[in-house]
């Protein structure tokens, strides 16, 4: 039918990159406002209502409970920017984001690529790498404490590999607490990256792969030049999601180390919670608002470059 003809034409290869057969004429596309409205209404409606509330609270000095509230304007923000703990928590977030995102993406792509190939017992691997995603952090935390303890599984493995010198109590050491949390986070979220790349790789055209193979491309080149461009969008999306998750991170640092020892694994999420629990509702809200601004800025920056290159590519 028409559809199939168009599809095969668009599969023509120019070099090894996929190029649309002709530029799309989006000028004639219908309006999309009604389509995006429900999502917009739900998210912006519910969440921004809460954001507005937070912004309002951030101008108060309030314990979160009593009827006594005092308007302090921007004082909470001033205090926040002068708070070294807040800055160090942001720094931890940056480190966390870079490392987790990189490793997560690498692992996700490698797993997805391998499991798209014919390996035996693929289902078992798929389940094993995804199980950590399924189990809630609150439940896993004591298990992780166990694994990371002085005589826990991690140290046993290191010893048996002859790396006995590296054993330590991972969560009690100020120099390794952050890395322990990073490790635990990668453990629990690599499965997400995997499932997304796996889905994205399903979109890779079988014919394209066939043609490449016939042309003699090896596995690595297939991966780099055919698969990667296809999943680039997912990589960017994953970057944004990781940035948001990093900024919002609460569960593992709180449950494993409470941001310690001595704030060596402090994160803004823990900071916000602690201040809120300590009856500093205004201060805590100010931190939430600042986090929101940072998060928005980061996602804008990351998607802007990608959108521009996408637009160029598709001739819009």
């Amino acid at each position: 039918m028409n559809a199939q003809r168009h599809q095969s034409r668009s599969s023509e290869l120019v070099g090894l990159a996929k190029v649309p057969a002709r530029p799309s004429r989006v000028q004639l596309a219908p309006h999309g406002y009604l389509w995006i409205f429900p999502a917009f209404a739900l998210c912006v409606g519910v969440i921004y209502y809460c954001v507005g509330y937070s912004v309002y609270i951030s101008t108060l000095s309030w314990d979160g409970l009593s009827s006594y509230q005092q308007d302090v304007g921007l004082e909470n923000y001033q205090k926040l920017f002068a708070d070294p703990l807040f800055w160090s928590s942001l720094w931890h977030t940056v480190v966390f984001f870079v490392v987790v995102f990189t490793l997560q993406t690498l692992l996700g792509i490698v797993f997805a690529a391998i499991l798209h190939s014919k390996v035996k017992l693929a289902v078992i691997y798929k389940v094993l790498i995804f199980l950590p995603v399924v189990i809630a952090p609150a439940i896993m935390a004591p298990v992780h404490r166990n694994v990371l303890s002085k005589d826990g599984a991690l140290n046993s493995i290191l010893s048996s590999l002859g790396l006995g010198d590296f054993t330590r109590s991972w969560l009690a050491d100020t120099s390794t607490s952050l890395w322990a949390i990073i490790g635990v986070q990668i453990w629990s979220s690599a499965g997400v990256a995997f499932i997304l790349f796996f889905a994205a790789m399903s979109q890779v055209d079988l014919e394209t792969l066939e043609a490449a193979r016939i042309d003699g491309a090896g596995n690595v080149r297939t991966l780099l030049y055919i698969v990667m461009p296809e999943v680039k969008g997912t990589v960017i999306a994953l970057a944004v999601l990781n940035a948001m998750a990093a900024l919002r991170l609460f569960d593992f640092p709180y449950l494993l180390t409470r941001g310690g020892p001595v704030y060596s694994s402090e994160f803004p999420g823990v900071f916000i919670y602690r201040e809120y629990a300590a009856a500093h509702a205004g201060y805590s809200s100010a931190a939430s608002v600042v986090l929101l601004v940072i998060a928005l800025g980061a996602s804008v920056l990351m998607t802007m470059r990608h959108r521009r290159s996408l637009r160029a590519e598709q001739g819009r």
């Binding site: 999502a39 917009f40 998210c43 912006v44 519910v46 969440i47 921004y48 809460c50 954001v51 937070s54 944004v240 999601l241 948001m244 900024l247 919002r248 609460f250 999420g269 916000i272 919670y273 939430s288 986090l291 929101l292 998060a295 928005l296 996602s299 998607t303």
Partner: peptide, 9 residues
Amino acid sequence: MIMGALTLP
């Protein structure tokens, strides 16, 4: 604007 909703704990 919708993405901004991702940021709230």
